[in-house]
Simulated assay, not measured.
Amino acid sequence: MNPTTLTNGDVPQPTLASDIDSTETMTLDTYTFPTERLKTVMSSPNKTPLVLVSCGSFSPPTNLHLRMFEEAADYCEFETDFEVIGGFFSPVGDAYKKAGLASANHRINMTRIAVRDSSTWIGVDPWEPLHKEYLPTVKVLDHFDYELNKVRGGIDDSTGQKKQIHVALLAGADLIQTMSTPGLWAKEDLSRILGHYGAFILERSGTDIDDALVSLQQWRENIRVIPQLIQNDVSSTKIRLFRKRGKSIRYYIPDKVVDYIYEHGLYADDEKKQPEKGKEKAASESAPAGSSIAATS
């Protein structure tokens, strides 16, 4: 839910659903790091264990957001000495105040729905949106590093030894463009994100990565560019635009996320002006019984 302002000017800590199918809630005080989809033992002890973290709005999550993780996992397997042991969506909190941003509760629910039946290794971490203040990306990556290596002590390398887990940022090419724009990112944040953690960047049509990398040359060896072999330029912005225009959004995003959007009336310009149309659309586009379920900004 969105935080509400109290009479004394203080903003309470956000409260989120603890699980998509649960009526229980969690706050930052009751938060626990989600580990159920992490590998507990490495398959290849000679490799470096890696956790991929994708930060963004995910309003809504698209099939391309999911595909980024798969592309990165393939790239790591065939082109690097990393072994991917897990991946996480980390939706930004409500304090980000971005246009078209659904509430953190809805975005957490949608990302959980997106991965629930479509993946065995991608999870959703609510730690970032459980904060009432906006958190820079570097603090989110530090959080994952702390939980994985300080709290959990790393991962069993299959020989009985523990290995430290490398955390890296996973993002689309548009993020690298913002990083190369003077003044948008703090230099110390870029140094830690790209110098210490590194990034896996998926190519995106219409984005000139080579041009963006010119001003980031000092960290070039830690920026791994993944070619997008099948072009896909679906974006959350385009999905929201389709929704406002009353167009179908099915097959651009996971089916059950589409159902959730219509059920909760998300991203329509003014649901009150066309309640019947909204209801008809939701009914006509609901998934048929027995259909398969697939579960960036």
Rank of each mutant, 00 (worst) to 15 (best):
E263V: 03
R152L: 06
F89S: 05
S90L: 09
N2C: 02
W185M: 08
P3T: 15
N46S: 15
T80P: 00
V167S: 11
P49Q: 07
D125K: 15
D174P: 01
D21W: 07
D125H: 08
S57P: 00
T40D: 05
T30L: 05
A73H: 03
A287D: 02
E24A: 13
P254N: 14
I209T: 11
R67D: 12
Y31L: 09
R224T: 06
F200N: 14
D174C: 13
L130Q: 11
M26Y: 02
S191I: 06
Y262W: 00
I85R: 08
A168K: 09
V51S: 04
L16Q: 05
H196D: 02
E79Q: 08
L229Q: 09
P182S: 13
E79A: 03
Q228M: 10
K98H: 12
A95S: 02
S158H: 11
L175C: 05
W185L: 08
I209K: 13
R243K: 14
R152V: 07
V257W: 00
K279D: 01
D259F: 04
I193M: 07
E133Y: 10
T5C: 11
P34H: 14
E271I: 15
L194Q: 10
Q13G: 13
N109Y: 07
L169N: 00
P45Y: 11
V124K: 05
F82A: 02
G154E: 14
L50M: 11
Y267H: 09
F144H: 14
T7Y: 02
Q161N: 13
K256R: 13
E285V: 00
Y31Q: 13
G246C: 03
M68Q: 14
P61A: 13
R224H: 12
P34I: 11
E70N: 09
L101H: 08
L101W: 06
C55P: 01
E271P: 10
T181G: 02
